[in-house]
Simulated scan of single mutants.
Amino acid sequence: MARKTKTITACPCGRGFPYAECCAPAHRGHAPATAEALMRSRYSAFALDDDEYVLRSWHPDTRPATIENDPHLRWVGLDILESTGGGMFDAEGVVEFRAHYRDHGKPGDMVERSRFVRHDGQWVYWGPILADGSLATI
């Protein structure tokens, strides 16, 4: 009798759910309901090298033409530090996060306060908020 095995791969975003139930729906076109959910799905897309989703979820006014992946950089963990606004009835929100990575095998992390806005009824990433409170321009 053959044994049934089921592989459940944890989502890179760190919420503790299987990828198929967590960020995969967003990557396949289902719009996240909150700015934080979009942030988590974008992190997962970076971790999975899904450049198409990263660009698609970026506001067209601030989106770069391309993204270059570093083959030596691996995203290995995400901590949401603070989330304000960004709910179902909000027009914008801010999510502060710490993303952990390994670059050439050496651990590191980055912290960013990100602004998210509604565009055509869906949450999109606008860009980072700089230390002085201004928005970065591309």
Rank of each mutant, 00 (worst) to 15 (best):
S57Y: 02
C11V: 03
G87L: 01
D51Y: 06
R42Y: 07
R40F: 07
R74H: 12
G87E: 01
D79C: 03
H59W: 02
P128K: 13
W75D: 03
S83R: 02
H104M: 13
M39H: 04
G14L: 12
K6F: 02
H119G: 05
H100L: 06
W58N: 03
P32Y: 06
T5A: 03
A136S: 13
M39Y: 06
R56F: 05
P60I: 08
A33N: 02
R113F: 03
A20L: 13
A10K: 09
F46H: 13
L81A: 10
A24L: 15
G127L: 09
P64F: 07
R28C: 02
R42L: 05
G86F: 01
A47E: 02
R63H: 08
T137D: 04
M88Q: 11
T84M: 14
P128M: 08
E92F: 08
K4G: 02
L135E: 15
R28E: 13
V111A: 04
L55Y: 07
H30F: 09
S83L: 00
A37C: 07
D51H: 05
T5F: 05
L81K: 05
G108Y: 12
G29D: 04
H119A: 03
G85L: 14
D132Q: 04
M110L: 14
E68G: 03
H100S: 13
G105L: 13
R115S: 11
L130F: 09
H100C: 08
D49F: 13
A45T: 08
L130R: 10
C11H: 04
D49Q: 15
F116L: 13
I8A: 10
T7F: 02
D49A: 15
C23L: 06
E92S: 14
F46M: 10
W123H: 00
Y43D: 12
D109P: 01
T34Q: 04
R113N: 06
D109Q: 13
A65P: 00
H30T: 15
V117F: 04
A37P: 08
G29C: 06
S83A: 15
A47F: 10
I129K: 03
L55E: 07
A24W: 01
E36A: 04
L78R: 12
A37T: 00
N69G: 06
P64R: 07
S41T: 01
R42G: 05
H59D: 14
H119T: 04
P60F: 05
G93Q: 06
S44R: 04
P107K: 11
